[in-house]
């Protein structure tokens, strides 16, 4: 394990503020957590007496459940605050919400919000650490960590690997955080999308390669990740039809035949089967999609432990 890594009390807004050594520590801790959730008795007393608050201003049952179970596995108490749908309504004051919860003794906030940058805003009103569980189209660092861990666990490293992310890159916080994290860990990242779903200047911003032809994008890849396509993008006029999208950018058997023999197939879920990914690929031996869910729980346990389990470094001497 890398020396001098101390994540106690740290915020996690996105992976740009985490070093590769810190990410490696998160992976190693995740592995321990994963073995704990695989045994019969799945709970450990580590965070007894700590209170984790999940603040969800946007619907996401999967992510919320994963965080809450992670906290409970570590024996922390969990307060769940959901205000789905109201995130952009006027008159809602985040400040008052956080002040109220802080007064109840919350030790860590997990926040999902439709507005990018909001996790940092929560921290402005509270000195407790804040974990970003997805802010708008900006970042989703725990998803990226679990994606990266899923590859790291199978391949032993990310350094030098070729990873391809296919789909609606423009609207994907998952893609953004993965680009940052994977580049940091030494992977070569290719993003693949129709031109209307590709963010401007992405090559410059993240040092990744933009490719518009799926076949070219997957040929060399050690892992291929498909992103969920939101149906409403079609009505926004960003691509002509789901049929055409699926034909040009869906991961099907023909695409899989073009890849390396030991390629990993990934998807952050929930999948649109038959659109961005076909059953014969999603359920193939290459797929780690279901394992990604387990890894998500383990990664979140690791993060909660690393951030809450100890005394903050700044308080020492």
């Amino acid at each position: 394990m890398a020396k001098n890594v101390n994540l106690v009390g740290r915020n996690l807004y996105d992976l740009d503020t985490y070093s590769s050594a810190e990410i490696e520590t998160i992976f190693e801790t995740t592995q321990v957590m994963k073995s704990i959730i695989k045994r019969d008795y799945k709970k450990i007393p580590t965070l007894r007496g700590k209170t984790v608050c999940t603040l969800f201003f946007e619907d996401s049952t999967r992510t919320r459940i994963s965080f809450e179970l992670a906290a409970k596995r570590l024996s922390a108490d969990v307060i769940s605050f959901t205000k789905a749908g109201s995130s952009l309504k006027k008159g809602e004051s985040l400040q008052d919400t956080v002040y109220t919860l802080d007064a109840m003794g919350v030790d860590l906030y997990v926040i999902r919000h439709g507005c990018p940058g909001t996790p940092a805003l929560v921290h402005k009103y509270s000195d407790k650490p804040v974990l970003n569980a997805g802010d708008g189209k900006h970042a989703h660092p725990t998803q990226a960590l679990l994606d990266m861990f899923s590859i790291w666990e199978k391949k032993g490293t990310l350094d030098g690997l070729k990873i391809t992310i296919v789909g609606d890159i423009l609207h994907s916080r998952v893609a953004r955080s993965n680009c940052i994290g994977m580049k940091k860990m030494g992977a070569e990242v290719t993003v693949c999308a129709p031109r209307t779903l590709m963010p401007p200047k992405i090559e410059k911003v993240y040092g990744v390669k933009a490719e518009y032809d799926l076949y070219k994008a997957v040929q060399e890849a050690d892992a291929v990740m498909a992103l969920r396509i939101q149906m409403e993008r079609q009505s926004e006029g960003l691509f002509p039809s789901l049929g055409e999208y699926s034909q040009k950018y869906g991961l099907n058997k023909n695409v899989l035949e073009q890849t390396k023999d030991d390629v990993l197939i990934m998807h952050p879920g929930p999948m649109n089967r038959g659109i961005e990914i076909f059953p014969e690929v999603a359920d193939s031996e290459h797929s780690v999609i279901i394992e990604q869910v387990t890894n998500g729980l383990a990664v979140r346990m690791a993060l909660l432990f690393l951030i809450l389990g100890g005394k903050a470094a700044k308080e020492v001497k």
Binding site: P116, P199, P200, K201
Partner: peptide, 13 residues
């Protein structure tokens, strides 16, 4: 601005 910053922040440009 539509460009580097909209990509980085994940907001519309």
């Amino acid at each position: 601005n539509y460009g580097k910053m909209s990509t980085k922040l994940g907001v519309k440009g």
